[in-house]
């Protein structure tokens, strides 16, 4: 039974895509020359959506890139993701509107993002031009969308959640980026993010062992503890014990 395997992007299928054994890509080299190289695309195999061969190649290249989280993108439990994508012409006008709405209107996007309780901070912005510092002048052919997130949990789980839960809202951020596949299925979306991701050289968290849920729990717990403390002053031992019991019952999901 022939598998309905196809190439993953909109590019015309090439001879490369037809081979089963993936060709090793030109490494995204750390350039020694003045002119930066074009980041080589990951090979596309005919055998499926994800590219284990690409990951294997990346393993050989970059040493510790397993499951998309090289150690330099990690500090304790915090993970950094930095993604650039090239934006189509309409995005120049569309994205600022999306940003404005996201910022000023409590839309499903911002509400859902806050429910993805493993994100500490995230930001999106459009880069239209490079400020002049006397460097060889840059003329951007396109604007570029910058996305950054600081989050907990596995990279793959993160993208999974993004794919599924934000299948509606996420489109608005990336729908005007070249090559953006649909958020579902998650496979091509993960590959898209991984292709467009740049690894950090350094990532720092002031509280690396803390997850977002711990922080949110901690914030609420503090308020409740303060209130308990005030209420319990001057209580007899038995009453105090009863109040303490009630307090624990109230905060049990925060500890």
């Amino acid at each position: 039974m022939a598998s309905r395997a196809t190439t993953m992007s909109n590019a015309k299928p090439t001879a490369e895509a037809a081979t089963v054994a993936a060709r090793r890509p030109a490494a995204r080299t750390r350039s020694r020359s003045a002119r930066p190289p074009v980041a080589a695309p990951r090979p596309r195999t005919a055998s499926g959506r994800d590219t284990p061969a690409a990951t294997a190649a990346a393993l050989a290249d970059g040493g510790d890139k397993v499951l998309g989280t090289p150690s330099r993108n990690v500090d304790g439990k915090a993970i950094a993701i930095t993604v650039f994508s090239t934006v189509k012409w309409p995005g120049r006008f569309f994205l600022p509107v999306v940003f404005f709405v996201g910022t000023h209107v409590p839309t499903p996007i911002s509400r859902t993002l806050s429910k993805l309780s493993f994100i500490h901070f995230a930001r999106w912005t459009l880069v239209r031009e490079m400020p002049d510092n006397g460097q060889p002048s840059e003329t951007l052919q396109y604007p570029h969308l910058y996305f950054e997130s600081n989050f907990n949990g596995g990279w793959a789980e993160y993208i999974d959640a993004f794919s599924h839960i934000l299948a509606g809202g996420m489109k608005f951020f990336w729908s005007t980026s070249y090559g953006f596949p649909q958020p579902l299925p998650t496979g091509p979306f993960k590959v898209y993010i991984e292709r467009n991701e740049t690894d950090a050289s350094h990532f720092y968290s002031a509280y690396p062992q803390a997850t977002t849920t711990m922080i949110l729990s901690g914030l609420e717990l503090e308020k409740k503890l303060k209130s308990f403390d005030e209420k319990s002053v001057g209580l007899g031992d038995e009453e105090f014990a009863a109040q303490w019991r009630d307090f624990l019952t109230d905060v049990q999901e925060l500890v």
Binding site: R4, S47, R49, P185
Partner: peptide, 17 residues
């Protein structure tokens, strides 16, 4: 499960034939 939501119903990656 991903194949189900994929327009092209592609199969998951697997070791080669």
């Amino acid at each position: 499960e991903d194949s189900r939501v994929d327009d092209e119903q592609r199969l998951p990656s697997a070791p080669a034939t």
